[in-house]
Simulated assay, not measured.
Amino acid sequence: MQSKVTKMLIREEFNRERVEELIREARKHGPFHALSHDEREATRHEYLAHHAQGQDLWVFGYGSLLWNPAFHYVDCQPARLFGYRRRFCLQSSIGRGSKERPGLMLALDRGGSCNGRAFRIESKKIESETEILWMREMISGSYDAKMVRMKLPHKTVSGLTFVMNRHHPRYIDKLDMEATAKLLATGEGHLGTCREYLMNTIAHLEEMEVKDKYLHQLASKVQEIDDVS
C-alpha cells in the first residue's frame, strides 16, 4: 500500500506567532481549549527536568510522526510500546477536521501495545527540538508528555511519548467502529483529510512490516462507506 499525498508539517511553521494564529483561527468557529505559551512551556520543562542531562532523547511516534516528525533526529528505529494502544479517540476541529467536517485523530490510549518508530534527538539539540515538538503536539493540551520504556530491535530504552489526556474535552471514550469510520470518511481540515491520515499511517507501518488490525478494519469500513455513497 503506497502512502497518500498529504500536506506536510514544516518545522519553520512551528513558532509562537504561528501557534497563536492557529488558536485564534480555531476559536472563530467555536470554543477551542488551548494551552498558553507559558503553560505549554511549563509542561516541557517539567518533563525535561526528569531527563538525564547529557543523554540523547528517544521519542516514540505512532501516527503522523511516522512520516512527518518535523524535528531533527539522528537515528530512527522500529519500536514497540507496552501499556498503550493506538486509537482514534481525539476529536479534531483543526488540522484534519473543521466545524463543518469534524474528524478524529489517533492517540495512545490505555491498554495493549503499539508498534511505531523511535526517533533519537542528540543531547545538544534537545532544547530546540523539543520546543518544536511541544508546539506540534501540545497546542491544546490533549496529550500528556510521559516517560515510557520502548523496545527497539536490539535493546530497550526509556524515552518520551505523548499519551491521551483523558480529562481533555476532546477525548472520546466510547465510539464504535462504524461511527469512527464515518468520521474518518468525512473529516477534513487545512492539513487534509482523516482518510489520508489513516492510509498514511497504515502505509508507513507496512513499510516496517507491521500490520495494525484495528487500522485495517477501519480502512475496510471507510471503503464500504465509499461503495454505498
Rank of each mutant, 00 (worst) to 15 (best):
M1G: 09
Q2R: 10
S3H: 02
T6K: 02
T6C: 07
I10H: 07
R11T: 13
E12T: 11
F14A: 03
V19K: 00
L22K: 08
E25H: 06
R27Q: 15
G30E: 11
A34H: 12
S36W: 10
E39P: 09
R40M: 15
T43Q: 10
T43S: 11
H45E: 15
H50K: 13
G54K: 07
Q55P: 03
F60V: 13
G61M: 03
G61W: 04
L65Q: 05
A70W: 02
A79R: 01
R80K: 14
R86G: 02
C89E: 05
R96F: 01
S98W: 03
S98A: 08
R101I: 06
R101S: 11
M105Y: 03
L106V: 08
A107F: 05
A107V: 10
G111H: 10
S113P: 01
S113G: 05
F119S: 05
F119K: 06
E122I: 14
K125Q: 15
K125D: 15
I126E: 02
S128E: 15
E129V: 10
E131R: 12
E131H: 12
L133E: 05
M135Y: 06
R136Y: 04
E137M: 10
M138H: 06
Y143F: 15
A145F: 07
R149I: 11
R149K: 13
T161R: 03
M164I: 14
M164D: 06
N165I: 14
N165G: 10
N165F: 12
P169Y: 12
Y171V: 11
Y171K: 10
D173F: 12
E178I: 13
L184R: 00
A185W: 02
H190F: 08
H190K: 08
C194Y: 00
C194I: 01
M199K: 02
A203P: 02
H204Q: 04
H204T: 07
L205V: 03
E206A: 09
E209L: 07
V210S: 01
D212P: 02
Y214Q: 01
Q217T: 04
S220K: 11
S220T: 12
V222Y: 01
